[in-house]
């Protein structure tokens, strides 16, 4: 028994360090470093735990610009055996349908796989679409919000958490699991793994030469959705009264008076 596990990770701008220009109200994009989507590290951790318990290999896959190599090195450093960087200019501009299509075609090349592991959502787009959509292209069963996994004789038993429920499901392999955010503690990087990765050259790059996908089905052209325009946020009308003085005591007195005037029963 040994599992062929594939984990999907996205290379995203680190929104933790993104700031807004207070004057123009726009995003300060300069010098924003990218990182592996933090919720995907939970997926990597789960994949590595499965490998440790049941044996097998973990392959990471990411569709991204070539700069994502650094992210894949990081994942290899966590203990992933092999990483595939799916990259080509023709993949650019893809919405979630075209992204999941391209990813699923790449994942098909990793057959026979047993368990696909996805993060719950990305911090830059937060759609949580790609897991379900990839399962639909591959026509394999899937489940979201997984917190715990056991494997026995071709059956994957998962625990998952909904708003008010904890559920247990059994899925046959191959299947796709979407890991709940923050459901485990991702391990840190080991230098020895990283060095090994460099020597053994375990990051492969696949372009559309390898995948051979029709141009009309990928990238912007293969995306049903179009982002038309961006307009300024219409704000909810508020009173906008601001107390900007040195003395905090006076400020809070002013505030409590206002809240009492509004009829709020706080004192």
């Amino acid at each position: 028994m040994s599992l062929n596990i594939v984990v999907a990770v996205k290379w995203v701008p680190n929104t933790q360090v993104v700031n807004i220009d207070p004057k123009t109200g726009t995003l300060i994009r300069e010098g924003i470093p990218s990182i592996i989507n933090p919720h995907d590290l939970n997926a990597v951790e789960l994949a590595l735990q499965l490998k440790e318990r049941y044996g097998g290999t973990v392959t990471a896959i990411s569709m991204a610009p070539t700069s994502a190599r650094a992210g894949l090195e990081f994942i290899i450093g966590m203990g992933v055996d092999r990483a595939i960087l799916v990259t080509d200019r023709v993949f650019a501009g893809a919405d979630t349908l075209a992204t999941s299509y391209t990813l699923s075609k790449a994942i098909e090349r990793l057959k026979p796989f047993d368990i696909l592991v996805f993060g719950q959502e990305t911090i830059d787009s937060s759609t949580a679409h790609i897991g379900a959509q990839t399962a639909s292209w591959l026509r394999i069963p899937y489940i979201y919000y997984v917190t715990d996994v056991e494997y026995l004789n071709g059956v994957v038993k998962v625990k998952r958490k909904l708003e008010k429920r904890i559920e247990v499901y059994e899925l046959p392999i191959p299947c796709l699991l979407v890991v709940a955010m923050k459901s485990n503690e991702p391990r840190s990087v080991k230098l020895s793994y990283k060095l090994k990765a460099k020597m053994e050259n375990c990051i492969e790059v696949w372009t559309n030469n390898e995948l051979g996908l029709t141009r009309e089905c990928i990238g912007l052209r293969g995306s049903p959705t179009r982002v038309e325009k961006s307009i300024a946020t219409p704000s909810v009308p508020r009173k906008k009264q601001k107390f900007d003085g040195q003395d905090v005591k006076t400020a809070v007195k002013w505030l409590v008076d206002k809240l009492v005037e509004e009829g709020l029963k706080i004192v």
Binding site: T225, R226, K229, I231, T233
Partner: peptide, 17 residues
Amino acid sequence: RPPFGATLLAHIRAPER
């Protein structure tokens, strides 16, 4: 929906589907 970046709203359509 608000896209990446904070003070703008994106208008998204799927005109062909």
